[in-house]
Design a protein around this nucleic acid. Structure first.
Lengths: 235, 235
DNA sequence: CCAAATAACTAGACAACTAGACAAATTATA
DNA sequence: TATAATTTGTCTAGTTGTCTAGTTATTTGG
C-alpha cells in the first residue's frame, strides 16, 4: 500500500492547522506556494486542499485564497426560536439580511399549514443569516398577513424580524413542529451562501403559532452543513 | 448549469429596475454600495453593471454614477411615417441597417393587403433601427415591385428607405392603418436587438399607400419595449 | 507474470474573481 | 471659488475554478 502525494499533503496541511499554526478564518498559503513547497503540480495541491474542504476543515474563496474554517455555529431548535438571540448567546455577531419581501399566493402545503385559503395572499420573506459576516443560512418565511395586520409595513420599517412581529402585536410565539432533511446546494444557493455548488445543506421546515395556537409563520431554512450544526432541545 | 456572481447580480439589479424601484434617469446605488450589499469585489459589480449597459438598460457617467436609461418616445403618426426624420427631429442620431434585401413570394396576408396576386414577386426588406448606436427595433417591409419600377436598384443605391422610394417616384405616401400587438423576443430577435430572450416587444403591422390610394408598402416592426414607447396621436 | 484498465499526476490554457493603484470627472464642502 | 471627497474608468497583478490532454504509476484480472 502506498500513500499518494495528495493524501500525504492533505494530512500534512491538516496537521499544521491542528497545531494551531493558522487561526480560524486565517488565510493559508496559496496553491502556488504549496506547489513549490511540496514540489508537486498545482492540481495535486488542489486535490489535497479539496479533501480538507470536503471535511470542512477549510474553505476557499475564488480569486482570494483558502481559509481555515471557523467552529460550527450551534443552532438550537426549541420552543422559542430566535436566530439573533441564539447567536448572541454564543458570542457571535449576528446579522440577517432580507433579500426579498412581497405578497405572493401560498402553495398548497403553506396554505394548509397556515390554515388559510389557497387564494389568500400571504407575505413572503426571504433572507440570509450571517455569523461574523459569513453567510450561514437562507431562510424563507410565509406569514398570513390577514391574521397579522400591519405586518408588511412593520417589516419595511424594522430590520429584525421578531421586532417586526412584536410591533404587529405578536408578543410571543412558539414552535409547533420542525422537520429536518438535507440536500445539496444548487447554483443560486451556492452564490447566496458564498460556497461551492453541491455542498450539503441541512433543511428545516417549521411552523410557528401564537399563544392562541393560530399559525403565524411557516418557514423554510437552509443551513450550511459546514458552518452549522443543529441542536435539538428536549425539556 | 452554473450561475456566475456577475450574472446573478446583473439579473438581480435588472429585476429591481424592472420592478420600478428606480425610475428612468434615476441614479442607481454606487459600485461601492453594491459591492457591500452583494459581498463581492467592486470589479465584479462593474462587470454586472457593464452587462446592463451593453443591453442599454442603464448608462454611466464618469465621476457621477449609474443611471436608468430613458425610453425613447416614438411618435406613431397616422399620416406620414418616416423613421429617420422623426428621430432627427427629436435630436437623436438615427441609423438603420438593412440586413436582408431580396425578392420573395408574399404570403396570403401580404398579397391581400398589397392588392396583388400571390404569385407576383415582391421586394422583401429587413433591417434594424438604432438610436445612439443601440438597436431599438427590427422592421420587415414588403414592397410590390411591379408597382414601383426601379425600386430594387434604388434600395441598393440609397441608404435611406424613404429616399429610395422618393427616387423611384414615390414622392409621398400615407399610412392606411396600423395594428399593434405584443410578444416576447425569441433568441434571434434577442440577438439582433442585443437584449435578453423573453423581453417584451411592441409589434406593429401597417400598410402605407400612395396618393392614389394604391398600397405601396406592407410592414412589420418589432419595437423593444424597454427602449421605446409609442405615442399615438389622434387628431 | 503480463496486459489492460484505472487512478494519480503533470502541463497548460482560460475564465471568474480579488486586490490595489491611479487618473479623470463629478459632487460636496469649507 | 477653491479644496476635498466621492465615483467611475482603466490599468496591472495575483488567486481560485474549470477545462482538456497527455504521461506515469498502480491496481486488476486472466
Amino acid at each position: 500500500m502506498k500513500t499518494f502525494a495528495w493524501k500525504y499533503i492533505s494530512d500534512q496541511i491538516y496537521k499544521e492547522i491542528n497545531e494551531g499554526r493558522y487561526l480560524e478564518g486565517q488565510k493559508l498559503p496559496t496553491e502556488n506556494e504549496y506547489s513549490l513547497r511540496f514540489g508537486v503540480n498545482r492540481h495535486t495541491i488542489r486535490r489535497a486542499l479539496n479533501e480538507l474542504i470536503r471535511k470542512s476543515y477549510i474553505y476557499s474563496r475564488k480569486g482570494s485564497g483558502f481559509y481555515v474554517s471557523e467552529k460550527k455555529t450551534i443552532h438550537f431548535i426549541n420552543q422559542r426560536p430566535r436566530f439573533t438571540k441564539s447567536l448572541i448567546a454564543s458570542g457571535d455577531t449576528p446579522l440577517t439580511k432580507i433579500i426579498r419581501l412581497e405578497y405572493i399566493k401560498p402553495n398548497e402545503e403553506e396554505a394548509k399549514n397556515l390554515k388559510i385559503k389557497k387564494e389568500e395572499m400571504v407575505i413572503f420573506l426571504e433572507g440570509i443569516g450571517y455569523r461574523n459576516n459569513t453567510p450561514i443560512c437562507i431562510y424563507k418565511k410565509i406569514f398570513p398577513s390577514n391574521r397579522i395586520p400591519g405586518l408588511m409595513a412593520s417589516f419595511k420599517k424594522n430590520s429584525s424580524i421578531s421586532k417586526a412581529l412584536f410591533d404587529s402585536g405578536i408578543k410571543d410565539y412558539i414552535r409547533s413542529y420542525s422537520i429536518i432533511s438535507s440536500k445539496l446546494t444548487n447554483h443560486v444557493e451556492a452564490f447566496l451562501l458564498k460556497c461551492n455548488q453541491g455542498e450539503p445543506l441541512i433543511c428545516t421546515k417549521n411552523l410557528n403559532v401564537n399563544n392562541k395556537k393560530e399559525p403565524i409563520e411557516f418557514g423554510y431554512t437552509l443551513f450550511m452543513g459546514s458552518r452549522v450544526e443543529i441542536y435539538i432541545e428536549n425539556n
